[in-house]
Simulated assay, not measured.
Amino acid sequence: MPDERIEKAAIAVFAAQTNWAEPNPTQKTVKALWDGQMDAVRDSFRRLAKAALDSQEDQPADLDGLHENTPTCSTSCAKPKRSVK
Protein backbone atom coordinates (compact mmCIF):
# COMPACT_ATOMS: atom_id res chain seq x y z
CA MET A 1 0.00 0.00 0.00
CA PRO A 2 1.25 3.51 -0.78
CA ASP A 3 2.23 5.76 2.08
CA GLU A 4 -0.53 7.49 4.03
CA ARG A 5 0.08 10.94 2.49
CA ILE A 6 -0.39 9.58 -1.02
CA GLU A 7 -3.51 7.65 -0.05
CA LYS A 8 -5.12 10.68 1.63
CA ALA A 9 -4.28 12.92 -1.31
CA ALA A 10 -5.60 10.33 -3.79
CA ILE A 11 -8.90 10.11 -1.94
CA ALA A 12 -9.13 13.93 -1.90
CA VAL A 13 -8.56 14.11 -5.68
CA PHE A 14 -11.10 11.31 -6.18
CA ALA A 15 -13.67 13.15 -4.06
CA ALA A 16 -13.05 16.43 -5.90
CA GLN A 17 -13.50 14.83 -9.32
CA THR A 18 -16.57 12.76 -8.47
CA ASN A 19 -19.99 14.02 -9.48
CA TRP A 20 -21.80 13.51 -6.18
CA ALA A 21 -25.58 13.29 -5.86
CA GLU A 22 -25.30 15.47 -2.76
CA PRO A 23 -23.02 18.52 -2.78
CA ASN A 24 -21.10 17.69 0.41
CA PRO A 25 -20.64 13.94 0.89
CA THR A 26 -19.49 12.69 4.28
CA GLN A 27 -16.06 11.16 4.73
CA LYS A 28 -17.79 7.83 5.28
CA THR A 29 -19.57 8.13 1.91
CA VAL A 30 -16.36 9.09 0.10
CA LYS A 31 -14.41 6.23 1.73
CA ALA A 32 -17.13 3.70 0.89
CA LEU A 33 -17.11 4.69 -2.78
CA TRP A 34 -13.28 4.78 -2.84
CA ASP A 35 -13.09 1.27 -1.37
CA GLY A 36 -15.50 0.03 -4.05
CA GLN A 37 -13.33 1.22 -6.95
CA MET A 38 -11.21 -1.16 -9.01
CA ASP A 39 -7.50 -1.21 -8.18
CA ALA A 40 -6.67 0.40 -11.53
CA VAL A 41 -8.95 3.36 -10.76
CA ARG A 42 -7.45 3.87 -7.30
CA ASP A 43 -3.94 3.53 -8.75
CA SER A 44 -4.62 6.27 -11.30
CA PHE A 45 -5.64 8.65 -8.51
CA ARG A 46 -2.59 7.62 -6.47
CA ARG A 47 -0.32 8.50 -9.41
CA LEU A 48 -1.95 11.94 -9.69
CA ALA A 49 -1.64 12.49 -5.94
CA LYS A 50 2.00 11.39 -5.86
CA ALA A 51 2.90 13.70 -8.74
CA ALA A 52 1.20 16.63 -6.99
CA LEU A 53 2.89 15.89 -3.66
CA ASP A 54 6.28 15.46 -5.32
CA SER A 55 5.89 18.79 -7.08
CA GLN A 56 5.40 20.50 -3.72
CA GLU A 57 8.73 19.11 -2.56
CA ASP A 58 10.51 20.13 -5.79
CA GLN A 59 11.02 16.47 -6.67
CA PRO A 60 10.44 15.00 -10.10
CA ALA A 61 7.47 12.67 -10.12
CA ASP A 62 8.65 9.08 -9.70
CA LEU A 63 5.75 7.40 -11.43
CA ASP A 64 7.69 4.26 -12.28
CA GLY A 65 8.25 3.20 -8.69
CA LEU A 66 4.73 3.82 -7.43
CA HIS A 67 3.16 0.57 -8.58
CA GLU A 68 5.66 -1.80 -10.05
CA ASN A 69 3.06 -4.49 -10.69
CA THR A 70 0.60 -2.26 -12.53
CA PRO A 71 -0.01 -3.76 -15.97
CA THR A 72 1.02 -1.63 -18.90
CA CYS A 73 -0.67 -1.33 -22.24
CA SER A 74 0.65 -3.84 -24.71
CA THR A 75 -0.71 -5.23 -27.91
CA SER A 76 -3.87 -6.21 -26.03
CA CYS A 77 -4.74 -2.49 -25.78
CA ALA A 78 -4.26 -1.82 -29.45
CA LYS A 79 -7.25 -1.60 -31.74
CA PRO A 80 -7.93 -4.88 -33.48
CA LYS A 81 -7.14 -4.94 -37.17
CA ARG A 82 -10.19 -4.84 -39.37
CA SER A 83 -10.48 -7.56 -41.86
CA VAL A 84 -11.50 -6.42 -45.29
CA LYS A 85 -13.80 -8.79 -47.12
Rank of each mutant, 00 (worst) to 15 (best):
M1Y: 05
P2I: 01
P2T: 07
E4V: 04
E4K: 14
E4D: 06
E7F: 08
E7T: 09
A10N: 00
A10E: 02
I11A: 15
A12R: 04
V13E: 10
F14Q: 04
A15D: 06
Q17E: 15
T18K: 08
N19M: 11
N19Y: 15
N19E: 15
W20L: 03
W20K: 01
A21H: 07
A21N: 08
P25H: 05
P25F: 12
P25W: 06
T26A: 05
Q27I: 12
Q27C: 10
Q27G: 15
K28M: 13
T29V: 13
V30L: 08
A32N: 08
W34R: 13
W34V: 10
G36R: 14
Q37E: 13
M38Y: 06
M38N: 13
M38R: 15
D39T: 07
D39R: 03
A40N: 09
A40S: 14
A40W: 07
R42D: 02
D43C: 09
D43E: 15
S44H: 13
S44I: 04
S44K: 04
F45K: 03
R46M: 11
R46Q: 11
L48G: 05
A49Y: 00
A49L: 07
A52H: 07
A52M: 07
L53P: 01
L53N: 01
L53I: 11
L53D: 08
D54F: 03
Q56M: 10
D58V: 04
D58S: 11
Q59M: 09
Q59R: 13
P60F: 12
P60Y: 14
P60H: 14
P60W: 13
D62Q: 01
L63Q: 07
L63G: 07
D64E: 12
D64M: 02
E68L: 07
P71W: 01
S74D: 13
S74G: 09
T75R: 08
S76C: 05
C77Y: 03
A78C: 04
A78F: 11
A78G: 01
K79V: 00
P80W: 15
K81C: 04
K81Y: 10
S83W: 01
S83Q: 02
S83H: 03
V84R: 05
V84K: 00
K85R: 06
K85S: 00
K85W: 00
K85A: 06
K85I: 00
K85Q: 02
